[in-house]
Design a protein around this nucleic acid. Sequence first.
DNA 1: TATGAATGAGTCTTCATTCAT
DNA 2: AATGAATGAAGACTCATTCAT
Lengths: 204, 204, 204, 204
Amino acid sequence: MIDNIREPKQKRAIEKKERIIEVGFNLICKNGYYNTNTAEIASQAGVSTGIVYQYFKDKYDILIEGLEKYGDDIFFPMLKNSNITFDKKNFEDVIRNMIEYYVNNHKISNVAHEEIMSMVHSDKQVAKYYYKRELEMTNSIKNLLIKNNFNDNNLYEKVHIMMGLIDNLCHEIIYHKHDNMNYDLMKNLIIDSIKNLFKNDLTN
Amino acid sequence: MIDNIREPKQKRAIEKKERIIEVGFNLICKNGYYNTNTAEIASQAGVSTGIVYQYFKDKYDILIEGLEKYGDDIFFPMLKNSNITFDKKNFEDVIRNMIEYYVNNHKISNVAHEEIMSMVHSDKQVAKYYYKRELEMTNSIKNLLIKNNFNDNNLYEKVHIMMGLIDNLCHEIIYHKHDNMNYDLMKNLIIDSIKNLFKNDLTN
Amino acid sequence: MIDNIREPKQKRAIEKKERIIEVGFNLICKNGYYNTNTAEIASQAGVSTGIVYQYFKDKYDILIEGLEKYGDDIFFPMLKNSNITFDKKNFEDVIRNMIEYYVNNHKISNVAHEEIMSMVHSDKQVAKYYYKRELEMTNSIKNLLIKNNFNDNNLYEKVHIMMGLIDNLCHEIIYHKHDNMNYDLMKNLIIDSIKNLFKNDLTN
Amino acid sequence: MIDNIREPKQKRAIEKKERIIEVGFNLICKNGYYNTNTAEIASQAGVSTGIVYQYFKDKYDILIEGLEKYGDDIFFPMLKNSNITFDKKNFEDVIRNMIEYYVNNHKISNVAHEEIMSMVHSDKQVAKYYYKRELEMTNSIKNLLIKNNFNDNNLYEKVHIMMGLIDNLCHEIIYHKHDNMNYDLMKNLIIDSIKNLFKNDLTN
DNA sequence: TATGAATGAGTCTTCATTCAT
DNA sequence: AATGAATGAAGACTCATTCAT
């Protein structure tokens, strides 16, 4: 009942806590929250079960801290190195690169992606994290466009739609949920849609 | 060794089985699969725990049967009454109606939606159901378009993208995940995007 | 609570009861008492579960009635056709025949044998049945010997020992529990032991 | 996925595990495997139900470990102190002692004996244990005889038969299954049979 | 007589969390 | 700060038996 959660100060202790987060989050991403138990987390992290509850309120806490620490690497790696510059003239190339980057990123961690997306749909806090970061991403791209002289008008909505389109494509390519889907064609259609979204900025 | 699952024959028993599916599926949709236990399902359905296991292999089975029975109403109600006809001239109206229909439908069962979407991301069988029906939906719309003289070229991909756009909008409106999002504007942008997708069919 | 067990009078009902006994006893013999459930018995006997409890007090009752009806066929078939006659001169042949008969009988129903022997060791009533019949068998053989002019002295004990020897051999041959055991040799040793037991009757 | 069974390291924990084995095995021996539940084992051992499953895979595991730990004391105590020496001249005495030893041992734990024998007839692993140890016992006696200049010829079979005879007698005396059985007489007959088995070694 | 639907106590087992050391 | 032993409530599932028809 008493909140005894201790923030580790010694170097070794800090490492321990981080190992728990890493291992715990990985296991949850791989097998799902309910199929991961604390004993396994502790054992794989090389610590005792007791220590887990000195650094974390409960199992759920591990998930949230893991999400905060590793979530961006999985979902929004772009946020970290978005110092992309581009000219309106090569806008299409930028989009193509972006798609490729997105797809590659998904490929690396598609299991985690699915598991976290599952929780985005069922857990308030995970959802909160996700939508907050998604918003940041949207703004980040929006700002990038503004920096490149895109008209601010309706930009927020346009970027959101663009991201949805890319995400949809990405999902299709990675999880291959529909046979008969021609990915290259779909990609071109989506790029065309995006260009259409920004036609006012691109044509003049 | 023996398949103990009994298919009820008496009227009262059939009703009972259906009550279990309904109650069980609802509870799972409301609270999540892992937060719903068989005792609760049984008690809320007004039956004993034992009877549950005479009609269902296990708890998971209730989910799957519920999905088969109610899933379409929640996710793909359009599949049932898709005898919509339209003229290319009122294409935009059709899309607007479709969006409205979609949004209204989401509104009714948004909790279930989220919980099931969660499982689409974490459970193979639920995913299988979902993507199969989504495919049917895609084909159904595709056929509708063909019937209305849309060119078959790339139609599959186009419809898929269109559905993604609508879904994205819908999600935005219902769950209100991003402040500052102007829904009407977004809706118009999406309709414009869809019209652009089918520009070859609509312009001539 | 009230003893409602009904003795069936109609022909069809009698057949039903007998089918339950047969199927139930067979299943118990094959899979063990605890691994056999009444639902399975009923279904394999082609009757409803309810009817079982009109003819039998409980599951255990099926076992006991089955034992009474079929036990002898499995364990003591000799009791039924023991009108063997023999001369002291061919005593050894009689023993050899007896062993063969025993072994063959075991072979036919060795699974049932084991399962029932298991219960002989754990259930009072099954034990009671078994030892009672074994006693009858002993006496029956004893009488046979007396009829053939064996001296009554110590006959009871001698026959019992003889039967133990044969049973031991039989078990060895059927279940093959020990490698390196030379069965023919063992058989000869046992026959020699039996002849030794009755040496007073055989030598003069 | 992960082997959760923990081997206790702390002294108190080891004692606890041993108490579970002891209590569990005793209860199973007294009441039978199916009539013993884990809750009872735990409570009688003075531990929680949870701890049982940290030391044992399942209920069956308790039985097997109990068998391994206590089985020999019950069934084959001779294996532990078989440094008996004897002369051919006092062979009969040795046999008589052996019988007495056997009978006394049976007396101490006759309930356990029966329950385990029941499982020897119905459970593969218990059977495996039993026949393996019985074989060891046979060999041990065989070696004892060889050391005392018995001819190796057919010794394996002879010892096996001898043990069967003793076991039969023992069973008779302990469980008293047949009235009218004269035990002293039977004992003498059996000793005579055994001596006859080894007559070649004893006469010269 | 017969059916098969229904009961619910009972069983094994898991696991997040706490405790003693 | 750390261990790992211990807890016990909770959950899924079974099955002999009874009940309603």
